[in-house]
Design a protein around this nucleic acid. Structure first.
Lengths: 104, 104
DNA sequence: TATATGCGCAACCTTTTGGTTTCACAAAAT
DNA sequence: ATTTTGTGAAACCAAAAGGTTGCGCATATA
């Protein structure tokens, strides 16, 4: 399944996971202790996060630490910036129209 | 149903709608002409976008123009900034640890 | 007035999502 | 060597998502 970062952050639990591992890498069990669901459910969320490279797995013995890939978060910023840029350009155009009116 | 902005931007079609109306307010039919789906499907997306205040409806005769509420986009930024801040603080803490080691 | 247009809403259907339970397996601990 | 612990994967399930078609209603247009 083709995932993207926007789908990844759509779920509140996944956003909370991201926030937690922003502090430090954590294991599935460690993460699950902060939520009201099973470890398996958290593992599923981690898989989604992995599929779009928001999260990286680092095995340590029989534990697996999941760490945040902060660069991926930039993709969100980029889109938001694009929207804002389009929005502001629109006002520039309006300004131009108003300037033209004033100059007549 | 309780929606939030993150769910709103999860769908690619909705992100495209947001980008389009960032340029100028548009009607459902006007929007639908840019996509490969029915007007009703676009209307459903608009309803989702309305429910989390990303979009505002402005009736004009029998047409309804949907315009972007740019302020809502800031909520995305805020969350991203929060993640980044936590992430960077983490490194500050590591720096502190390293500083302490160096001072011994 | 009759007709065409633009729209929202409801019913329906299929696929996806998010959860659970159960299992197998590797790595630690006993 | 046996048991405990940490994990991913698979099967299953209910709910939600995203699409369609068909409708009714209000507003333009003829």
């Amino acid at each position: 399944m083709r995932r993207d970062i926007f789908q990844a952050i759509a779920d509140p639990t996944r956003r909370a996971i991201i926030m937690l591992i922003a502090v430090q890498a954590m294991t599935p069990n460690g993460l699950a202790s902060h939520f009201d669901t099973s470890r398996q459910a958290i593992s599923k969320h981690l898989r989604v996060l992995q599929e779009c490279d928001v999260v990286k797995a680092e095995p340590k013995g029989r534990e697996i630490y999941y760490g945040l890939e902060i660069e991926k978060v930039n993709e969100i910023d980029e889109w938001v910036a694009q929207v804002r840029q389009v929005w502001e350009t629109r006002f520039d155009q309006l300004d131009n129209v108003l300037d033209n009116l004033k100059n007549k």
